[in-house]
């Protein structure tokens, strides 16, 4: 009876020490969850989710205030990744926040631009270059395609142009599925 008690007590002590040690040894600084969520988000900074950027959205998700399906640029894959990370059920993108579009960049019509700087102030990643009364230009490689510059432009000189496929960014396609289903199935799918 007493031996058993001692054993249990000893075990409890030992495990306590191990736990305490590992808590110190493997201590994690800061809130890694926000950073990990933020790492999945596409950093478009478009605000379609209803938050003023990707980081605020990540913080809102971490706090449980926002749902995981509010990021159209992240697409379905993004929702899946968030669901995996947070261990929650996948849900399709919420259409209220917009639909995924092919990745685009903003292009300023340099002949129409009046140099009002409104788009510069709107750009979340400083991808527009220019000064007051000077023509503005988008640095294409920095543009995330957030479209935030389109609305403020008083002369509507900004358009979003999808990034065209070229031999440089072309991707191999998924091989055509090799086992052709019976005609019955094809018909079912067609219907």
């Amino acid at each position: 009876m007493l031996t058993a008690l001692y054993v249990m007590l000893g075990l409890a002590l030992l495990l306590g020490v191990v736990l305490g040690y590992s808590a110190l040894k493997f201590k994690v600084e800061g809130d890694p969850l926000v950073a990990r969520i933020d790492a999945i988000l596409p950093q478009t900074q478009c605000g379609q989710c209803g938050y003023p950027g990707c980081k605020p959205y990540a913080m809102a998700i971490a706090k449980g205030e926002a749902d995981i399906n509010q990021c159209p640029p992240g697409g379905d894959a993004g929702v899946h990744a968030l669901a995996d990370l947070l261990g929650v059920e996948y849900k399709p993108l919420n259409a209220e926040h917009g639909l995924p579009k092919p990745k685009s960049v903003a292009v300023i019509d340099e002949n129409v631009c009046i140099g009002c700087t409104l788009c510069i102030q709107a750009c979340p990643v400083d991808a527009i270059l220019g000064a007051a009364k000077h023509m503005h230009t988008v640095i294409a490689s920095e543009c995330t395609g957030c479209e935030l510059c389109v609305a403020p432009c008083p002369v509507d000189c900004i358009t979003m142009e999808p990034i065209a496929e070229s031999p440089a960014n072309w991707k191999w396609r998924y091989p055509v599925f090799e086992i052709k289903p019976e005609p019955a199935v094809t018909r079912k799918i067609a219907e």
Partner: peptide
């Protein structure tokens, strides 16, 4: 990579 750059630039701007 592009997302990392965008994050950095956004933070810098803020």
């Amino acid at each position: 990579e592009a997302a990392d750059i965008a994050r950095e630039r956004n933070e810098f701007r803020l």
